[in-house]
Design a protein around this nucleic acid. Structure first.
Lengths: 211, 211, 211, 211
DNA sequence: CATGAATGAGGTTTCATTCAT
DNA sequence: TATGAATGAAACCTCATTCAT
């Protein structure tokens, strides 16, 4: 599959009937499972269909091609992550910056860990499926949410610029990726969470002017 | 290509005749070029051979399979990065911690930027080629170099634990990856460098006990 | 193709649609034709597919690899031979031993001659395709049939041991192979049949105790 | 390799120098070893050369192609077998027929067993290397020797015809092949020898007119 | 709508053979 | 003469995608 841009990966039909919704969900879940158990290059449309309990033909009724399938799963996951972070941002309004960062980072870490399987699966296909483009889009969305939140911080003279927030986000996702791919116990996970909070807090403190 | 571990990716034969050395180099370089111009999934062994100006057969004299070829390029790049960071670590001994971090981060950023093309190319194949395993190995190596360095920091009561250094490294590589994939001007590059220094410095300061 | 054991050569899928059954038969027949017209080492999967009037892909839907294809044809042929001999054995029960041998040998010779083309074709691939293992299995089956038959011979004090029957079978197949590979007229064929009967009769008479 | 006739398989040069003779012998022996350890289709010229301790280039100095190599080994072996049988035939002159058969069969069995490894190895390549043609030639030679011998048998009214001797030879080689491929202990081997003598004796007795 | 048989371009890899050194 | 690097045709096999049923 050649490298991809964002255009024209949308699913073929919107599930209007109950059966369709179920089928789409099954295919989507099967994709993740195949990705995790077989790896990115043993993921074939037939295998996904088989695992989902449908025929290849059916799969192609909902997705015009293999990439659109992976893209949809990817987009879905990022949508969930984005929403979780946005919700956290809203809740954190008017808190002191340090508190804000903590809530946002924890929300991010938690949502990634909740579907650690999907996260790990997607690391394997991201480059082939328009991952970078999609990540850029998501990063923009998250940045906006965080910017809005930070503007309400009572202890900030001046909100940080885009660049700073992007830096924080990319560091965050890098650290999260390592943690997920490494596996690790619940204890490790909690420590990662704490340290990622610390990392972001100290960076933001250093990078912004505040009282 | 199925997911891979670290074992058994070594090149097939060591060049004994002068001619061979040239051939191997040409193949290696061609691999990077094809990766950059065609993308990860349009990289075929024949294309690489053609670009290198040799026959496929010749390619297979030196690499037992496609993966080993990509693996070798990957390994080569990580070797260069590791060395650059290790050298920086040695130079930074006995400096204050903040200075240490600056030198190391700058070394890392610089070496990645120098071969930005390879870095970007490799992000595309990493998952298929034993990337995670190789990255883990590299991370260990870098961690050790940094630990040794930090033990000589005059302003540190207690050296940070492994976890903290790993966290810094993964955040660093995450940020760097985003920056590289985003492209960006020289100005952006300099700002990234500065901020990454700041990020690491402030995190390490926050995560360690010092005077 | 490396040497093979008996395991895991079964066809890949069982035809459910009517179309499939036809396809499978066509592929099987094409295999024999290619074997006969091109020889064992110019038999390629594409050639077989072409001759069968299907695409290579289709061939691989039914046979997981080239060997399994040849194996299936082999097995099929031996099945026919075995059945012919078994039927002869049943018919010959309670006859005098000499009569028994005659009927069995004639059945064997006849069935081999009927499909002389396949027999000759298969001699060429046997070693590569699990032939020895398959032949061993067939030999056991034939031996059992012959043992059962001989136990009903009224003129035998004691049935011959396994070894003796195996010896007869291997001599028989050796003689048959020579005859088939040599070609020869119908007259030759009839003489071969007579002499093979004589050979087996005289050996069995010499090797067993009888009245 | 396409099926072969007898023409043009002769080795490229006759070993005139001591070194050559040694090299040729090493290559020949290596061929058998590779055949036994790797199987017919994993026998490559490079592997043979490597095992023989020479370069591929050198191998091609002595054999114009792969087939000629296998053919030479084959021919060599059949030469030894033929000679052993011929010698036995000479020794057996003027003995009673039964004695003759015994001596000849034992000579044959013994020479095959002596180099059981070669025999087995050659069964694997025979079809690809002009085996049938070569075997025909050998069979003729053996038949002649046996005919000559039988003409001196004091207890034979009339010598058997060609056909009968060929039949005996092919049965003999078939039985021998089974025995060799089955492996088996020394005890089995001795029993095979005895029974093969019996088989040939009883067949010849039945097929000829004698006193 | 669902099925799954069929397609065939395209990818990876092998290996007999040559020839410059 | 010996070497072994290079060649490249040709083999095997996969899998995204289509379409008749």
């Amino acid at each position: 599959m050649p490298a991809a841009t964002l255009t024209a990966f949308e699913p073929r039909k919107t599930p209007v009937q109950a059966r369709s919704a179920f089928t789409v969900e099954a295919i989507s879940e099967a994709t993740i499972q195949v990705l995790l158990t077989h790896g990115a290059d043993r993921l074939t449309t037939s295998r996904v269909a088989e695992r989902a309990g449908v025929s290849v033909g059916t799969l192609y009724q909902y997705y015009p091609n293999k990439r659109s399938l992976l893209f949809a799963v990817f987009e879905d996951h990022l949508e969930k992550v984005s929403r979780a972070v946005e919700v956290a941002c809203e809740h954190a309004c008017h808190e002191p910056m340090s508190e804000m960062i903590q809530l946002v980072v924890e929300a991010y870490v938690d949502v990634k860990m909740q579907r650690a399987d999907i996260s790990i699966a997607l690391y394997k296909v991201a480059p082939d499926v328009g991952g970078p483009a999609l990540l850029t889009r998501t990063a923009q969305r998250l940045r906006k949410a965080i910017e809005s939140m930070l503007r309400t911080a009572p202890d900030l003279k001046l909100s940080p610029d885009r660049f700073t927030i992007d830096m924080m986000l990319s560091a965050m996702s890098g650290a999260m990726r390592s943690a997920l791919e490494a596996g690790g116990s619940t204890a490790i996970f909690r420590k990662t969470r704490e340290h990622l909070v610390l990392l972001c807090q100290s960076y933001m403190a250093a990078a912004t002017e505040h009282w």
